[in-house]
């Protein structure tokens, strides 16, 4: 190699010498690049085994950051046979979570925010909160991890981090995410009544149902102070919508606990989830004996389906 370079420097450069030099240069380049690639690959593959990395991982698991090891999976069962479509859950949700009051005018403009909403299907209304999917499409696409699924199975949103790209909103097959199109405004008398536990979202972020996580946290703190475990009875009507429901159609609880009411209901024969074919595994389960619906299928084919839509 040395001699070749000298040749290049030499007094006379023949075509052959040039070719040789060129070939040499390419070979050299390939050698170096492949060498670096191999070493880099080695370094990067060995990274997870570095001691520091390992400790961090185990620490995460201890905190319950890995969902597999967690014993809590919040879920909800909505009994459509009991639901009267009164809309109390929608109103309760709005008051609890400081959602700006909108008139009929805004509903038409498509800027209205309703974490819990009623959608008409046939001659009845179906209440739909965020379904807190176990495999949510929305958390995968977030470019800055502002929406993520936490260790208790809640699909959470960090308003401070959200950049307002609306990708999660577009990705959600249930359209359960809402963008704050303008600065939230409340009547003067209403400001006093805002819930101090829930932040008022700024304009330009995406927001969604949290399963009233502030209530869960409060309950947890209370139980910890009293030195006891949270009981299922306390959880059943915990979220604002469940609390407000006059017929008791909404039940909340821990789906990972096989003895809880919510997981018993979820296992019952009339249970189904929305759009099971998408594989999102929603943790809001619907219950109905008479209204056997699956919204993905056209109304005419409704009676053709058997009892197969249950997912959890």
């Amino acid at each position: 190699m040395k001699s070749n370079i000298k040749k290049g420097k030499g007094d006379k450069i023949g075509d052959e010498g040039q070719k040789l030099e060129k070939r040499n240069l390419k070979r050299k380049f390939l050698k170096t690049v492949s060498g670096f690639a191999i070493s880099l690959g080695f370094i990067s593959s060995s990274l997870p085994f570095l001691p520091n990395f390992k400790r961090k991982k185990s620490a995460n698991r201890k905190n319950g950051n890995s969902r597999e090891g967690s014993k809590i999976k919040w879920g909800m069962v909505i009994n459509l046979d009991l639901c009267t479509g009164c809309g109390a859950c929608v109103v309760a949700c709005k008051i609890e979570n400081n959602i700006p009051i909108t008139g009929y005018e805004k509903k038409d403009r498509g800027t209205e925010i309703e974490w819990m909403t009623l959608i008409p299907h046939k001659d009845y209304l179906i209440p739909i909160p965020c379904l807190h999917c176990d495999d949510p499409p929305c958390t995968k696409v977030c470019p800055v991890n502002a929406t993520y699924i936490n260790e208790e199975g809640l699909v959470a949103q960090i308003y401070d981090r959200c950049i307002g790209c609306r990708y999660c909103q577009v990705a959600c097959p249930y359209s359960r995410k809402y963008f704050t199109w303008e600065k939230p405004e409340f009547p003067e008398t209403y400001v006093q009544a805002l819930n101090p536990d829930v932040p008022v979202r700024p304009k330009g972020v995406v927001e969604k149902c949290t399963f009233c996580y502030h209530r869960i946290r409060k309950l947890k703190e209370k139980a910890r102070d009293e030195g006891r475990e949270i009981s299922d009875e306390e959880l059943r009507k915990l979220p604002a919508c469940a609390e407000a429901c006059p017929t008791g159609a909404i039940t909340f609880g821990n789906l990972a606990d096989p003895d809880s009411l919510v997981s018993n209901l979820a296992r019952s024969p009339g249970a189904f989830t929305l759009l099971p074919h998408l594989g999102t595994k929603p943790k809001v389960i619907y219950l109905s004996k008479s209204k056997r619906i699956s919204l993905e299928i056209d109304k005419d084919y409704e009676n053709l389906q058997g009892e197969k839509n249950r997912e959890i």
Binding site: K107, D108, R109, E112, F179, T180, W181, K183, G204
Partner: peptide, 14 residues
Amino acid sequence: YGDIITSLRNPGGG
């Protein structure tokens, strides 16, 4: 004023 001045809206809200 926020994105209200555009004609973008919530999908599902029309």
